[in-house]
Design a protein around this nucleic acid. Structure first.
Lengths: 222, 222, 222, 222
DNA sequence: AATGAATGAGGGTTCATTCAT
DNA sequence: AATGAATGAACCCTCATTCAT
């Protein structure tokens, strides 16, 4: 009898459900993030509360906590998601460029365009302070490369970053950001390159790349 | 009835008790603001709560509400107080300068110095997001004047501001801000002027003004 | 003017209200404890929740937290209050006794009586596990003294305590505790003394003290 | 419809799958109980939650509920399992004894030994309040028999139980329980027998039985 | 049977604000 | 004016339980 019991011990196989669960989990996670972005975007300086996300995603509080222990975690996931989107828009456009300044300038122009044309993305940027990280890691590399190549007047990488990100962030905050279109984007990036101490002819060359075709702004998103 | 009350104090006789009361009020108000500044500065991203201010000032909750209906009001008062301090440091130093660029540059250098040397002021700037406004109104005037005089490459006042404030704010956030001293301040302001499209010789001239004697940093303040 | 302001600085006197507050605080604290005792008593093994205490005391949740950060703290306060009551009933009765065994026996009999006659106290003891501490510290001293005087067969203080408290606690849990009156109390204490290895004649002597007049059981308390 | 289902299995034919299922059920149930014991033991005063059991057993929540509608049921099953273990250790050792006092004393000594030497069992006893019942039913019979035979001074079965279980439980709680070994067990049981009013020579006789060979304490179990 | 994602009621805690003194 | 106890709405978080697969 002992033996029989032993033989009958539970199998602990990977259950059918386990596989399904993986997909389900991914989907729910994505749903929560997706619904959270407008919540972050709409909220001003006052931080949204768990209930806001829960309502937006149409899931229960319990489910929310199953995925994101803190709203901070959700914010990071949302930023990461948006960041991926931006990068996806930028990478192919600059892939073939050998000039780091041109890569930098083109990336910045696309970023500016996205921030001004995509209401959701723009609102998100405005609401969430500390935007820095959104597509920053990429820019850092180009800045460094340009500096190493002796193309910048600025000799300090931190200051270079302050110029690039500071001007971009503040320019996006200004009311004019809503109206100037790509042309203003060029002005902003020109100011950045000037601030970095790039020689004038190089500035114009870096700004000469055509931008990829504009997607139509999806107004309904917000 | 509202009118009646208004009409009832036509003589503007200042009663003795009233006068004392005014001073008392002023003093208590100042006390609360003064004690609040380190509270704002010490707090990171999490907002301080009424109790923090109450404890710091050593007054009762009731008294607090007598003076500041919301903590927002207190924050504004604190910013205004600090702003006044900064302006007081800047105004005499630039009073005699006729060149708006030199005024701008010198003011920015003093501001930078204060933010890096005065731990309390610096911490306050870091903690309170959107501090931009601290001594901003003055800068706007100088920027406009310089632009009107054709001294800037940038033609859009909003972009000019984005350059000036964006670079300054982000440069102050960088770790390097803690170590570079006045020399880094010059670099930062040079980047700003370049970003604004000021001609090179004018930049150097604008940066040539000697700064007033440095106060010794008051480390104990924080 | 500076001087005037200085003179007007707030006085920070001990305010009238501060004194009142002390009394008020004491009263509210006592109220919460008092109302909590039946709550603990009525609850079986399931722990009462903050809301129970709040309702019982008729104060707001906020007030509760003003006084007791955790329900554990409240429990301790309640035990301490009851403990004081018991001790107050015991101390005068045994004050004149020189024999530690008689003190011990008399104290135990009064404790037993209180636990069986006072429904609130009894119910509290039953509900709250780990009653130990209620009037224990006193007993420990008498036990030690008796042991030092060579009056106990048991040579280990921890075992002596186990006998005294174990028998008492379990005897109070038995259904018979509700009916036997003082006579059963004598039996219980006799078993304890026997268990401690006290010589037979000493046991009877120790049990011979008359108990103070019984208060009428206050049935309405529960 | 319910009736129909019931009526549908009249032949009591044990289908092959059913037989397997029975064993499987038994095994899973045993697995959950087995894994639950350390969980109960490790947890202090705070009650373990379903998730703890689920993780420990490596089964899903759904499966858990298939076997135990409430954690209370699981606790009872665990107590019953341990109880069986203890009884299994005691029964053969006392089977041949005719003296109820000797049976009682020997059983108590084995119980004490198990509680002090088996870390898991001991921890379980400490954690789970009101464990009294673990091997109690057996003791009750011996107590009653001894009382009927006029061997006890105590005339009240409830009080007899209070003495036996109260002293045992409290003696096991004391720190000394961890060090005294079998010798302390004898002291504890002696105190119990004294408390029950057993005559001295009978006490020593009842304690004279040799204990079965000690299993080596299985330290790794906890 | 077994699985585990989803649920939501239950309970905990904070804190801006009021108000009697 | 100043005081500080009291308030309760607003949030936070856990966990027993369900149920589609």
């Amino acid at each position: 009898m002992r033996a029989a019991v032993t033989r009958a011990k539970p199998r602990r196989v990977v259950h059918h459900r386990t596989a399904i669960g993986q997909l389900q989990r991914e989907a729910t996670r994505a749903l929560i993030i997706k619904s959270a972005i407008p919540v972050f975007a709409e909220h001003g300086p006052d931080i949204p509360v768990v209930d806001d996300f829960v309502k937006a995603a149409g899931v229960s509080r319990g489910t929310f906590y199953n995925y994101f222990p803190t709203t901070r975690d959700l914010l990071e996931a949302a930023m990461s998601t948006l960041s991926d989107e931006v990068i996806a828009a930028i990478v192919p456009a600059v892939a073939d460029m050998s000039d780091p300044l041109m890569r930098l300038a083109t990336a910045a122009r696309i970023y500016y365009r996205k921030a001004t044309m995509d209401p959701l993305f723009g609102a998100f940027l405005e609401s969430v302070s500390g935007v820095g990280t959104l597509a920053v890691e990429r820019a850092r590399g180009d800045l460094q490369e340009a500096m190493d190549a002796g193309l910048l007047g600025v000799k300090d990488i931190e200051l270079a970053q302050a110029v690039a990100f500071g001007v971009m962030v503040f320019a996006l905050k200004a009311p004019a950001a809503r109206s100037g279109g790509d042309a203003r984007g060029v002005e902003v990036v020109r100011a950045i390159l000037r601030g970095l101490g790039v020689a004038k002819p190089r500035i114009e060359r870096a700004l000469s790349a055509p931008l990829p075709l504009e997607e139509t702004p999806d107004v309904e998103k917000l």
